[in-house]
Computed example of a mutant assay.
Amino acid sequence: MSAASDDAPLSLWQQIKEDWIAHGRDWTKPGFRAVAVHRFGVWRMSIKPKLLRAPFSILYRAMFRHVRNVYGIELPYTVQLGRRVIIEHQSAIVIHGQTVIGDDSVIRQGVTMGNRYLDRPTEAPRLGKRVNVGAGAKILGAVTLGDDANVGANAVVLKDVPAGKTAVGIPAKIID
């Protein structure tokens, strides 16, 4: 079996295996479980007859609520989640349904990614590849974080962060 390229679509089990490896081959980690439930939620939407999809949707909703209520990780299936995304720790992670998270990114506990204004409910952050988001960070509004960007712990990001730069503070400022 040859290695799949980053552009080739993966099956549900291939994606889950890749995420399992990225999470240190530990299926008990809440972050891995949240990502696996997300992958299942996306997969079940590929079942076209709604009647056949219904039991999978019920199962997904139960698993989603379990992950949200027990682990404190809210990761809806509508999030565009890249490959090998790591959710490092559990608790108080809320990700807006329109958020885009690039490959190999790391999300830590207490992170919020959401809209900034009530009158613009669909605006959500876009994270590039290999973005590192520190504990307690808040990324709000239609901001873009470039590839290899870093967000410091407890930072409040309200403006775009260029590729390879680090944002820290309240409100976040670029430091390098």
Results as ranks from 00 to 15, higher is better:
residue 130 R to L: 11
residue 131 V to H: 04
residue 131 V to T: 09
residue 131 V to Y: 01
residue 132 N to K: 09
residue 132 N to Y: 13
residue 132 N to V: 11
residue 132 N to L: 13
residue 132 N to Q: 14
residue 133 V to Y: 04
residue 133 V to N: 02
residue 133 V to A: 07
residue 134 G to V: 06
residue 134 G to I: 13
residue 134 G to Q: 12
residue 134 G to F: 07
residue 135 A to N: 13
residue 135 A to K: 10
residue 135 A to D: 09
residue 136 G to Q: 08
residue 136 G to P: 03
residue 137 A to F: 07
residue 137 A to N: 12
residue 137 A to P: 08
residue 137 A to I: 10
residue 137 A to C: 04
residue 137 A to Q: 11
residue 138 K to Q: 12
residue 138 K to M: 09
residue 138 K to C: 11
residue 138 K to A: 08
residue 138 K to E: 06
residue 139 I to V: 15
residue 139 I to M: 13
residue 139 I to K: 11
residue 139 I to N: 08
residue 140 L to P: 08
residue 140 L to R: 09
residue 141 G to E: 11
residue 141 G to K: 07
residue 141 G to C: 10
residue 141 G to D: 08
residue 142 A to H: 14
residue 142 A to Q: 13
residue 142 A to C: 12
residue 143 V to L: 05
residue 143 V to P: 09
residue 143 V to K: 06
residue 144 T to N: 10
residue 144 T to A: 07
residue 144 T to R: 12
residue 144 T to V: 10
residue 144 T to I: 05
residue 145 L to C: 02
residue 145 L to F: 04
residue 145 L to H: 01
residue 146 G to F: 02
residue 146 G to H: 03
residue 147 D to F: 00
residue 147 D to S: 03
residue 147 D to G: 02
residue 147 D to H: 06
residue 148 D to E: 10
residue 148 D to R: 05
residue 148 D to C: 09
residue 148 D to K: 09
residue 149 A to D: 02
residue 149 A to N: 02
residue 149 A to E: 04
residue 150 N to F: 06
residue 150 N to Y: 05
residue 151 V to W: 00
residue 151 V to I: 12
residue 151 V to M: 03
residue 151 V to P: 05
residue 152 G to E: 03
residue 152 G to H: 00
residue 152 G to T: 05
residue 153 A to P: 14
residue 153 A to G: 14
residue 153 A to H: 14
residue 153 A to S: 15
residue 153 A to C: 14
residue 154 N to M: 15
residue 154 N to W: 15
residue 154 N to Y: 15
residue 154 N to F: 15
residue 155 A to T: 12
residue 155 A to W: 13
residue 155 A to I: 15
residue 155 A to L: 14
residue 155 A to S: 14
residue 155 A to C: 12
residue 155 A to P: 10
residue 155 A to M: 11
residue 156 V to E: 12
residue 156 V to K: 08
residue 156 V to C: 09
residue 156 V to A: 13
residue 157 V to C: 07
residue 157 V to F: 06
residue 157 V to G: 07
residue 157 V to T: 08
residue 158 L to T: 12
residue 158 L to Q: 07
residue 158 L to A: 04
residue 159 K to R: 15
residue 159 K to N: 15
residue 159 K to L: 13
residue 159 K to Y: 04
residue 159 K to C: 07
residue 159 K to A: 15
residue 160 D to K: 08
residue 160 D to F: 04
residue 160 D to I: 02
residue 160 D to Y: 11
residue 161 V to D: 00
residue 161 V to E: 00
residue 161 V to I: 02
residue 161 V to R: 00
residue 161 V to S: 02
residue 161 V to P: 01
residue 162 P to E: 07
residue 162 P to T: 09
residue 162 P to V: 09
